[in-house]
Design a protein around this nucleic acid. Structure first.
Lengths: 242, 242
DNA sequence: TTATACTATTTGTAAGACAAATAGATGTCA
DNA sequence: TGACATCTATTTGTCTTACAAATAGTATAA
């Protein structure tokens, strides 16, 4: 049953989708570089022979992927933006939270994933950590230690700590991927901090980890991290029962 | 000049973005379940007190994230779709290729990332691989072995092989993350297959890996995988010089 | 010189109309 | 009666036109 040959496979795709695809290609191929301004919406509409709303729908698609950003005014327009690790990881974790919300993934699985994947990451962090990385980690830890910061600030510092730790691995793709997992675990930390109201255990484990990193002992570092994950898991299950 | 005391601080975000966010929330929170039909565009426009184009721009944003899909006709509408690992990983590897194209990431780094992260993954695959997983791997391998398939088909089978391998880990989040890396490496395999025109080395290494998986020897499995990555790296650098 | 107001440009939003697709109802013919 | 074609209603897709909002540059006035 292979009539699949189909001379024209898919022309059914909507105009806005096609235009979005073409613009995306143009951006990826370097026809438009980062920071460049795309032609005005009117001009694009004219060039592609479609209406402005269609162009706008296409641009919204790209905006949803953090590929372009619009500014109004005479010097305004739609600009190609540099997608940062943070934003991309953010959209990744958005997808992850979606999977969680739909029951395709659960928190326990994510904690487990971190356990599974962190080994090599921490090993490399021990090998490649620069002074700057260590400083970043210390700063985040210092902020977590100060007793008078808000819950939100504490959680932000927590994220910063873990990000700095994977930054130390020195590999951009590892950062990208681990950021995603870190993002996906934010709700857990939030819940623990606001519901269980316990900070000191987390901080002391973090201190331990920093120490092991400085001593370049990846085994103990990994072990401390696993204890942190054990702790998170335990408290999370406790908190989600109530 | 501040009569603009502004009771409501920041509404600067565009309407379509806000609506997209609200709809997304509603979907994630389960107000709309998978397969559900959203209200018609007219109805949404009315409900939010905005125009239909604005609603449409919002829907396009969600469509770009593979969250909704539209169908025309009496039974048509905008439907919530189940985002699959493949699609999500695909859109994210799109992001990764973007980072590559912009020089923020390079192929070598991605190969390295795979090396770094695979250890725990393969260990778990050895532990948790089911019969079904093994069968999937065998099927993909068999397709790669047949000498008369096209280059594209070979590459597809290659992807299937590696996906099946990480599927064996049994952890959804690990799958999700590793899919992204696998996707990001597709251009490498493509280049090697079409430019270097060499298949047998890849196939024999895959066979080796399958054997180690069946024997539950994660050390050798990891070793074979590393040799495959060495091979990819070598050939890739060769091919990209020319 | 400084500050104000104006103007031109570009995106943001709105409203209305028609085209296209499509499922279900209706009608026609054997 | 049953099968097939046609009509119709509904919903998204696209176009057109218009105006609102933001904003950089310019001109103007004190």
């Amino acid at each position: 049953m292979s009539f699949k040959v189909q001379t024209n496979p898919i022309i059914k795709s909507s105009i806005s989708k096609q235009i979005a695809e073409q613009l995306r290609e143009a951006i990826v191929n370097g026809q438009f570089k980062i920071g460049d301004r795309l032609p005005t919406e009117d001009e694009l509409a004219q060039r592609y022979g479609v209406s402005r709303p269609s162009v706008r729908e296409a641009l919204k698609r790209l905006a949803a992927q953090n590929l372009v950003r619009a500014r109004r005014g005479p010097t305004g327009g739609n600009f190609v933006v540099q997608p940062s690790y943070e934003e991309l990881a953010g959209s990744l974790s958005g997808a992850a939270t979606l999977l969680i919300g739909m029951g395709a993934l659960d928190i326990v699985e994510i904690i487990d994933a971190r356990r599974i994947l962190q080994g090599g990451c921490l090993e490399h962090a021990v090998k490649n950590a620069t002074e700057a990385n260590i400083v970043d980690i210390k700063i985040a830890l210092e902020r977590q230690r100060s007793p008078d910061i808000s819950d939100e600030a504490f959680c932000q510092a927590d994220i910063a700590f873990h990000r700095a730790l994977v930054d130390a691995s020195g590999n951009g793709m590892v950062r990208f991927v681990m950021y995603t997992i870190i993002e996906a675990l934010i709700p857990v930390t939030n819940m623990i901090v606001t519901v269980v109201r316990e900070r000191s255990d987390i901080v002391s484990l973090h201190e331990e980890m920093l120490l092991h990193l400085i001593n370049k002992d990846s085994l103990l570092l990994n072990h401390s991290m696993n204890r942190l994950l054990d702790y998170l898991l335990e408290k999370f299950e406790l908190a989600s029962q109530s």
